[in-house]
């Protein structure tokens, strides 16, 4: 019964959508079946796979670049308090600036293309990850740090064997949130900076003759892939060496 509930709720909403679409006068807004056939059309032309791969490619690069730079930087800034204090005002100033505000500058620096989009995704994931890693280090219990020190660990070893694993549960949460943000941003970046990908599909389908069935098909794909990405990273939280960090 509990498992059926989400399915039946979705079915009801689809039915409402279907009926609402039939009542409109303009005929521009697609009903669920039209969206489905739009997806089929994209699939037949090989565009669906092409656009999904293009979007995932940009997210992968931007996100991974952010992860491998932001987490070490954040851990170091959290560890060397003085560095953290020095950079904190700048980080706090940059944080409220939407990654989308960087679109003109990224086009100025990297031109219209993949690099500009990757840069935007990098920016969107980088700052939250730095701040989260910094805070995660600050939250490592004194007892564990003292225990690590007591066994004669050097600073690099302490960072690797105590601080990183102690901060990991919090880092995973930050990784999950920032992957979500990265996926939000790739779509926006593709609307402006490139000519492939799901974001491009949405803008292009509208511009090239009000194909709203394809617009909504693109939206559905974005939602589905976001769901899969989130479910994937959630698997990490189930690891035994991490579960202690998420309560019982």
């Amino acid at each position: 019964m509990k498992r059926l509930l989400p399915f039946s709720a979705t079915a009801v909403l689809l039915a409402v959508w279907f009926l609402a679409a039939r009542r409109q006068t303009s005929g521009l807004f697609p009903n669920p079946l039209q969206v489905l056939s739009g997806l089929g059309e994209l699939l037949r032309h090989g565009l669906l796979a092409k656009y999904v791969i293009a979007s995932l490619f940009r997210v992968t690069w931007g996100y991974l670049l952010a992860v491998v730079t932001a987490i070490p930087l954040g851990l170091l800034l959290g560890w060397y308090r003085r560095g953290g204090q020095a950079l904190n005002p700048l980080l706090q100033l940059l944080r409220p600036i939407s990654p989308l505000a960087w679109i003109p500058i990224s086009i100025l620096w990297f031109g219209v293309g993949d690099v500009a989009a990757i840069f935007l995704i990098f920016l969107a994931s980088f700052l939250p990850l730095v701040v989260a890693a910094m805070n995660a280090v600050g939250n490592v219990p004194t007892t564990l740090l003292r225990a690590g020190r007591n066994f004669g660990l050097s600073n690099p070893r302490l960072l690797r064997n105590v601080i990183l694993p102690a901060a990991l549960p919090q880092l995973i949460v930050a990784l999950r949130i920032s992957l979500g943000v990265a996926w939000l941003v790739v779509v926006a970046a593709e609307m402006i900076a490139v000519n492939s990908g799901l974001g491009f599909l949405i803008v292009d389908a509208r511009n090239a003759g009000n194909r709203y069935d394809l617009v909504v098909a693109g939206m559905v794909m974005i939602g589905l892939i976001g769901l899969v990405l989130d479910a994937g990273i959630r698997q990490l939280e189930k690891m035994k060496a991490l579960r202690w960090g998420y309560g019982s």
Binding site: T143, L144, R146, A147, N150, F151, G152, A166, L168, W244
Partner: peptide
């Protein structure tokens, strides 16, 4: 110093 080890009241073991 590892020649003298401290045992804490609780939460001293590494949970990971």
């Amino acid at each position: 110093d590892p020649r003298r080890i401290f045992v804490f009241q609780e939460r001293g073991v590494f949970p990971w």
